[in-house]
């Protein structure tokens, strides 16, 4: 059965990150993404889901199958109510990391998608929106 056009999936545990990846794989398959494009979107989702869980103390992923002119795409929004990112410029530098990983989370995810937007406020939370077109 196909997934609905939009929805929300929690990011409250490590297992949720795995579920989010699997959901994004399914959604991109339904939208007819090529294998490479599927993999790029799933990987970007994995990075951002982990960020929301690890640094944002848990959050959620909203998805939406979207249309832009004659193309179809997938929009994902990762929302957390964590501490926010005090120095966004620094966080968007390759190799910078505040925790574990290779410091490729945000910048790497950005390179894997067509559209990337980040909105963060210290003490309030972070919201990352990505879109990849078919």
């Amino acid at each position: 059965m196909n997934a609905p056009v939009n929805g929300e999936s929690p990011l409250k545990s490590e297992h949720d990150i795995v579920l989010a990846r699997q959901l994004v794989r399914k959604l991109t398959q339904e939208l007819g993404f090529s294998l490479v494009d599927q993999t790029k979107m799933v990987t970007a989702a994995s990075e951002l889901a982990r960020n929301a869980f690890t640094y944002g103390r848990g959050g959620s992923m909203h998805w939406e199958k979207t249309n832009g002119g004659d193309r179809r795409g997938l929009k994902l929004v990762f929302v957390d109510e964590g501490p926010g990112i005090p120095n966004l410029e620094l966080a968007m530098t390759d190799g910078w990391t505040s925790g574990h990983g290779l410091g490729m989370g945000l910048t790497g995810a950005k390179r894997l998608v067509n559209e990337f937007a980040i909105d963060t406020k210290v003490g309030v939370g972070t919201r990352v929106t990505i879109v990849r077109w078919k």
């Binding site: 490479v36 599927q38 790029k40 490729m104 790497g108 390179r111 894997l112």
Partner: peptide, 13 residues
């Protein structure tokens, strides 16, 4: 796999 390799390179790893 090729798709994984392409993605990793793009990711910067």
């Amino acid at each position: 796999q090729p798709a994984v390799a392409i993605t990793l390179v793009e990711l910067g790893l």
